[in-house]
Amino acid sequence: MADTPTPTVLLPEAEVQRIVADLAARIAPVIDDETVAAVLLTGGLWFAADLTRALSRIGRNVRFDALWLASYGDEQSSRGRIDVYADFQRSIEGRRVLIVDDVFDTGLSLAEAVRIAKAKGASEVLTVVFAKKPWPLPRAPEPDFVGWDAPNRFLVGYGLDHAGALRGLPDVCALD
């Protein structure tokens, strides 16, 4: 990664945490402790961990699960298809599911996660993304909760990566 550009901070860690706390306050009234928060791996893990802790701080202790989907591989743009590497680990039949993802761009991963949750019998599926990038084409479904309207730049940090690297940065940065 010697030729990787230096990341430019767009959202410092403190602002990331403020956005997460705001999302938790908006989500808490429409879920309950039986809700299954399902993170989309691997990028959504950082956001999901912070969001579930923020929900817990305000008295909402959700269940937790994960879906492992991939549309990027190590590329900087979506391959236009979704690979499912791991499905839900427990039954979600009859439960409200909150799909948690890091960034919404093409909408393919979120749409596939919603489809899977509905096929598994979820009573309701809500979606939350930390960042929503602009996109020239209509996307369905649009997320129910969005933390930050991101610029159309290649983002890293806070779970977002460049070929698997830079996910652990505490800030959200641009790499362009």
Rank of each mutant, 00 (worst) to 15 (best):
H162E: 12
S109F: 05
V100T: 10
L69I: 07
V128C: 14
R26E: 12
V129E: 04
Q76K: 15
W46M: 12
D3E: 14
S109H: 02
L55V: 08
L126E: 07
A131P: 10
R53A: 14
L41H: 06
L55A: 02
G157Q: 08
I116N: 02
L137Y: 13
E93T: 15
L45I: 09
V9W: 07
E124Q: 15
K120A: 14
L126K: 13
P143K: 09
P7V: 12
E112H: 13
F130M: 14
A165L: 15
L160R: 04
V103I: 15
P134W: 11
C173L: 09
V9H: 05
F130V: 09
R115C: 00
A86N: 06
D74S: 15
S123Q: 11
A70M: 00
A66W: 11
S56P: 02
F130C: 08
A117E: 01
A2D: 15
D3L: 13
V16N: 05
V103Y: 02
P136W: 03
P138L: 01
A54D: 05
S71R: 11
F145I: 04
L51D: 02
V129D: 07
W68E: 13
L137C: 01
G168W: 09
T4V: 15
V39T: 14
E15A: 11
V39C: 15
F88A: 01
S123W: 10
A111F: 05
S91A: 09
E93I: 07
I27Q: 07
A111S: 14
A37F: 06
D102K: 04
F154K: 06
D22G: 11
R96Q: 15
L137D: 14
V62D: 01
K133Q: 11
G80Y: 10
R57C: 01
R90E: 14
A165K: 15
S56E: 14
T106S: 15
L10D: 04
Q89D: 12
W46A: 14
P170G: 12
D176M: 07
W68F: 11
A48F: 03
V128R: 07
E15L: 05
A38T: 12
R60A: 06
G164K: 06
A140W: 10
V114W: 08
A2E: 15
A119C: 00
V103A: 13
D83C: 03
L40R: 02
H162P: 01
R90L: 10
T106D: 06
I99S: 03
I116F: 03
V62F: 03
A163T: 09
E112P: 00
E13I: 01
G43V: 10
V9C: 12
I82Y: 05
A66Q: 10
A119W: 00
G107S: 06
A70F: 00
T42A: 10
F88G: 00
R57L: 12
T8A: 13
V36D: 04
L160A: 09
T52K: 00
V97N: 07
E75P: 01
R167V: 08
N61F: 08
P29R: 08
V114R: 06
L55T: 06
V16D: 05
